[in-house]
Structures are given as structure tokens and as C-alpha cells.
Design a protein around this nucleic acid. Sequence first.
DNA 1: GTCTATAAGAAGATAGAC
DNA 2: GTCTATCTTCTTATAGAC
Lengths: 205, 205
Amino acid sequence: MDTKQRILDEALTLFSEKGYANVFVGDIAERVGIKAPSLYKHYKSKKAIFDAIIDKMNESFAEQAKAMNINGSDAAADSAIYESMSEDNLLALGRQFFLFYLHDDYNKRFRKMLTLEQFNNKELADIYSKLYVDDPFSYQSMLLGMVTAAGLLKTDNVEIMTLHFYAPIYFLLTVCDRDPEREPWALKTLDEHIKQFNRLYGRKK
Amino acid sequence: MDTKQRILDEALTLFSEKGYANVFVGDIAERVGIKAPSLYKHYKSKKAIFDAIIDKMNESFAEQAKAMNINGSDAAADSAIYESMSEDNLLALGRQFFLFYLHDDYNKRFRKMLTLEQFNNKELADIYSKLYVDDPFSYQSMLLGMVTAAGLLKTDNVEIMTLHFYAPIYFLLTVCDRDPEREPWALKTLDEHIKQFNRLYGRKK
DNA sequence: GTCTATAAGAAGATAGAC
DNA sequence: GTCTATCTTCTTATAGAC
């Protein structure tokens, strides 16, 4: 990886752990293995590094959303998938989704950085709301709506059903971000949550 | 309020909005209406102000927990309360609880400060875990366990039932902290969540 | 592109008058 | 207890050699 990229990478790691104000240009440079003044040949200021990270994050998540919409908009194919989805398959899917968000380096570090800057930076608060509130709700509502339409789950309020599916997952994610030692408990709890969710909403076995 | 107390109060407000590193001693002094050097007659350093806030927070929440345990340990009286609790009463209780945590000045500011410092400060991460994970779980498990024992709700897994009750409330709280304009939506969603929770877990009407 | 040296300024903290 | 003046240290950023 070239130096310019490594600067972004190390800066993101530090920002996600300590927050923007607690990270010094010299810290970033040290991690990259250069001296602070050399860093200014690549970025004109500390703020420029931060902005480059935000740009990259927006780009990366736009791609991710696009990829999901492509599948999501093919409603016929998707509903076939979900009609044939057993409880074990849904469990595996839920766990895979959770572990990806929890462990994927970019997701994890972006999310932690957003958490630390959300009250100080309206732009980052909006990104957080989009990524962890609005997007999961619209995507999962669509999915659960299709599963319901297929007769596998029953509800007269898909929005609340989505809340009941997603809020525990979100909660467990923030627990693990704060205290990684709780991950085994979180994974066990996640499994039981999805099983119970299926039972509560009348999934056919 | 005396100056020493006002310093803590203004500092907490600033720390909860901007995080410790983004708040300068001069900012705190300005809010209090004095100059920075005067502040050092009351606290010997910026860190000492922060520590005093933590001490006060620990003290305040210990009192709160004690008050809840006193009621909570009187299981006979409590279970009588919950046996006679109608769905409307539970709705009102849930909303009251939510609004208290959301709007109470100390709760709100402590919570936001903990959010901003959790990855940087193990002590604050532990306090967060206790206040927003462990304590709600043990308290609400006890409550829901009693309501279940009274035959008003049905489950074979009180822990997951508690997760299903609490995670949406926690989620809505963090949404409002981040974006207060979503509060009307959150309150409406909270009501629907509790109603649906009652239905899913077979509450008798 | 990286370095050393250094400027420029910010922020925490102290001294001492009132 | 509060103020002005000041010290010290830290941090961002630039200059200029290699």
C-alpha cells in the first residue's frame, strides 16, 4: 500500500479509538513510519486527512448500498430466496451479517469514529443516522415485508416488526464495540434472539 | 448555585457536546462568567474537573440504583403492582421511563459524555456497560419475570424477552440523542413497540 | 519524498496584585 | 475569589537541505 493510502488507514484507526482531537499528526506519521513534516507532502492539513476519510467512507457505503439495491430491486428473485429460507438459513444469514459489520475493519472503524464525532459534527451525525437507522430500516422492512407476503411470517405492522428484528442486533453491535470480551455472549444472544423472533412472528417450521 | 458547582455543571454540558479534548478551560470559565485563572482556585486542573464529574455521576447513579433496589426487593408488593397493571398502565410507565432518561439533564449529559469517551477510557466504558446494559437487564428481567410469574406474559426465556423489551427502547434513545428532531417519531414508535411486545408475549387484555 | 530545524499559535497552568 | 500578565508545553504547519 502506498504512503498516501497508509496515512488514511492509520489515521482512521487512531480517530476511531481516540477521536479526532486526541490524535496528533505526529501520531499518525509515527504509525506510518515517517516524520510529521513528511506527511504534509501527502495531505495539506490534519483536517484534509479527516475529510479524505469521510469521502472514502461515503464512496464505500454508496457502493455497498448500490450492490444491495440491485439485489433488492429484483423482487421476484428475492422473494423466491426468502420463501425457501429455513430457520437455520436465516440464523446463519443473521450471524454472518452481524459478524461482517462487527469485524470488517472499515465498518468497525468508521462506525466507532462516527460514534465519537456524532455530537460534534452534524455531517457525521447524519451519516450515522443513514447507515445505522434509515438504511437498515428500509432494507430490512423490504426483506421482512417479502417474507411476510410469502406467508412465512405474520404481522400487521412491518415497521415495528423490523424494529423488533433490528434493534437487538444494533444493541449487541454497540455492546461489542465497547467491550469486545462480550462477543461470545453477544453471539449466543443473537442466535436466541433470531430463534425467538421467528417464533413470536409465527414463522412456519 | 455556587461557583464550584456551576463549573461542574457547565463543564459537563460542554464535555457531553464536544468531548473532553475539544473543551478548553477558557470555555468552561466563560460559561461560568469568570476568567480561566480564577477557575484554578476551585479545581487544580482540567482533569480534576472531569474526575469530579465522574465521582458525582457514580454517586448519583448509586443512589438511583439503591432506590430501585429497595422497591425491587419488596417482591410481594411489586408483583401485586404488576399483576394489576393494564396495558395502558404499562404504556404510560414505559413512556415515562423513556422520557425521563431522554430529557433529564443529568442522565442525558452523562450518557452523551460516556458515549464520546467510551473507546478512550476503560473506566467510562465500564460505567456505560453497567448503566445501559447490565443494570437495565437485571432490573427489567426481574420485573418481566414477576409479570410472567403472575401469568400476564408468557415466555420460556426471560433474558431474550428482556432484550426484546429493552433493545428497542435503547435504540430509540440513542436515535434521539443524535437527532432530537426524531423525538416525535421515537415516541410514536415506542408506543407501538410496547403494544406489539404485549401482543407477542401473550399479555392478557 | 523524507528529513532537521523552526516558526506560529493554542491551551493548560501559575504568579502576584487587588 | 477574581483579575492581568506570563510561563511552559504541546501541536500544527512551514522552510529548506538532501
